[in-house]
Structures are given as C-alpha cells and as structure tokens.
Design a protein around this nucleic acid. Sequence first.
DNA 1: CCGGTTCGTTTCAGTTTGTATCGGTCGAGG
DNA 2: CCTCGACCGATACAAACTGAAACGAACCGG
Lengths: 214, 214
Amino acid sequence: MVAEFLSQNGFEVKTESDGAKAAERLINEDFDVAVLDIGLPNMDGISVCRAVRSHFSGPILMLTARGDEIDEVVSLEVGADDYLTKPVRPRVLLARLRVHLRRSSDTPSASQPSLIEVDGLAIDASSRSVFLDSVPIELTTAEFDLLWLLAANAGSVVDREVIYQELHGVRYDGLDRSIDLRVSRLRKKIGDDPNLPQRVKSVRGVGYILASKS
Amino acid sequence: MVAEFLSQNGFEVKTESDGAKAAERLINEDFDVAVLDIGLPNMDGISVCRAVRSHFSGPILMLTARGDEIDEVVSLEVGADDYLTKPVRPRVLLARLRVHLRRSSDTPSASQPSLIEVDGLAIDASSRSVFLDSVPIELTTAEFDLLWLLAANAGSVVDREVIYQELHGVRYDGLDRSIDLRVSRLRKKIGDDPNLPQRVKSVRGVGYILASKS
DNA sequence: CCGGTTCGTTTCAGTTTGTATCGGTCGAGG
DNA sequence: CCTCGACCGATACAAACTGAAACGAACCGG
C-alpha cells in the first residue's frame, strides 16, 4: 500500500520482504532513500539499519506497528533518520520523505522523471505542460492527469480499473463512462482521429494504451 | 520541563515564551537547533518557522499538543525538520535532536535558500522582493507569502488545504474564496494571462502549482 | 481622525467535468 | 454471412469548480 502510494506521487519504488536481502540490495543497488519496517522476517529493520548505515548514505525511515518508545530511541541510535508508527498516514510519510530528501541532497536524482516524451508528444509534469511536435497544447487538469498516467505507462495497456483508481481515487464500479469521455476529449486536443487513433488507442474490454513506436 | 531535561543532558538551553521574540532571537543569536511549540502566544510556531527558516540553517523541531495531521504536513512544508506530538517523551526528543544535529553537521550547507528562482522569476525572502526578468515587481504581503509558498514547492502541486492552513493558520473550511482571489491578483502582477496561465496554474479540485521548467 | 492601500466576503459569469443517453462498431457463435 | 449483445464515442445537460468585479472592513502612516 505504501509502495503504491509513493509510486503515484512520483517515486520509483522497489520492495523487498526479506530483511537480509533488503540490506544486500541497499548496499549494492543505488537507492535515494530507504523505508524499513521493523517487523521484517529474517532480519528486523533495526538490524538492517545497523548493517547498512555505514554503506548507505541516504535517509533511512523506520516504520513500526508498535508505538514503542524503546524501538524509536534504538532506531534513531543505530542511525535511522526518522521513525513513524503505523498506521502510516500517506501525506505525512510523503512530507517527511521530502524533508529528508531535501536535506540529504538537493538532487533527488533517481526518482521518476518529470518529463516524458513519446513520439513527438512531450509531457512535463513540473510545469504541467504538453507539446506536440514543439507546439504547445492546452489541456485541462483532468485531461493532463489522464495523459500523464498513460504516458508513464506508454507502450503498455493501462487497465480501465487502474485508470479509474488513479484518477478518481476510488474503485471502479464497472459502469462509469467518465474515462471514455476524458479520452474522447483528450484525443480531440492532441489531434488523434477517434476512428483510427494513432496515439491513444482503445483496447476493447481492457482499457487504453498510449502507443509508442519502439 | 523540556529545557531542564536537555540541560541535564549536556545542552545549553535558552527559552523564550513569546513567538515573535523567539523568531528575532533565532535570527540574531547563534543557535545550533530550534525547538518550537506550535501553540506559542503572539506568533505561533509555524509562523516562527516560516519567518526564520531562511535565516536559520540549523534543524527546527516542532512540538504540538494536537496530533493533527495537517499541522504536521504544514510544519514540514514550511521547512521544519521534525515534528513531535505532546506529551513529549524526553528520551525520544533527545534521540531525535542528536540525529538532526549529526545530519546537519555532516552537511553544513543544507537549508532552504532565501532566494528562489523559477524560470526568470526571482523571489528573495530576506528582502521580500521579486524580480521578473530582472525587473522589480511590487507585491503586497499576502501576494508575496503566496508566491513564496508556491515557489518553495515549484514543480509540484500545492494542495488548497495546505495553502489555506499556511496562509491563514487555520484549517480550510471548504468554501473560502480568498485563495483564488490572491492567485488572481498575483497573476495580474506577474503578467500571467488567467485564461492561459504559464506560471501559476490551477489544478482543478486540488490546488495550484508554480510551473518550473525542467 | 483622514485618505489611501490592502485584503477578505459576496456574488455572478465562464469553464471544466461527470452523468445520462443514443447511435455506431466489434466480434463470438451460429 | 448474419445476428445480437457488449462495448465504445460523443452529444446534451447539469453539477462542481474557478476567475474576478464590487463592496466594505481592517490597517497604516501621518
């Protein structure tokens, strides 16, 4: 759940349920930040933290179900940078992650890029602007959000349920047509003929895909 | 009580019960770390934090009685480094202080800059002045505060609720229009066409974003 | 106190977005 | 090759949201 939320907010997330493996990957791969659950199997979060602290320079956040003061003090003493008790409130986690990333370096490099380019269609999240062959296209909020979602998954089909969940934040009830409508309006603005769409293609019974020639 | 405990643990502590005076002393005297209570008289902790953040580079910890999620998110967004809810457990406070002091001594540079530049728009917090392509722009207090908040989060959407909480100090009631009005006035002054805004863009149903090229 | 500036509230108009609905298209099974 | 039902596109309309003018309260320097 945490992973999914962070993904939706522009982080590139990798998960690992085994503590020892997590430690190994933290040391060998190149992460910007670590979020550790204290109650991991095989090797608990505190041990992982102690093991990697001298090899991993980014911020380490600890999560726990127990609101245990001892855990918190111990976590911080073995080198963690922050400590949150479950249930984790997503916005709080996000705010704290940003604080630590800002502090630890001014270049949060490896997160999701804010610019995606697909076959002459450039989409910039940080300015919420879109260019089609260098010509600016004015999209509304809803249209942009849809396009960004499709672009982030360009070349692979995005399930209708996923689109609905991402754009509305709730589960798809099975008979809503608002997605189709957004697609319709988006196509019109990016000059895609609905009868023979070259960019936003429908996949009958599944969802939509932003075509990328590759 | 907090002061006494920290004194016993090797810190040299100075206290101030008046918020405005605290801000003044933080800027003029030379502290290593600040612990702010959100419920201070005269000037609340969040205001103090915002006021001093560009002049004080050490860690800032916020304390509050209410376990309010909004307070926490806002605290972190105005530049605080940590947030603890009362009753404060002394050992936890101590552990967190040490973490932050260790971090801040590692990176003597890190802190929010007093000057933010976004695509030809330069905003200087210390003199509260704004330049658009080197041409000075006269903004009122309210307009400047809004712009600074957006600029500090340039490239990412700032939630309406966060803006309201930050600018008014109270929770958003859901139907206030003063934010829209400020945005409207700000746009006019920085020469942003409201029908086709290139800098301050609305994100319908969410809030506003200051576009940053990337 | 006075005039001017700033800022929030009210209000209305314009835009955006979802819902309802109708017509067209696709494709499996005969 | 035909039929039927499921699915998709798009128009029309209504609800929700935003922009900003008008007004007045609060503030500020003198």
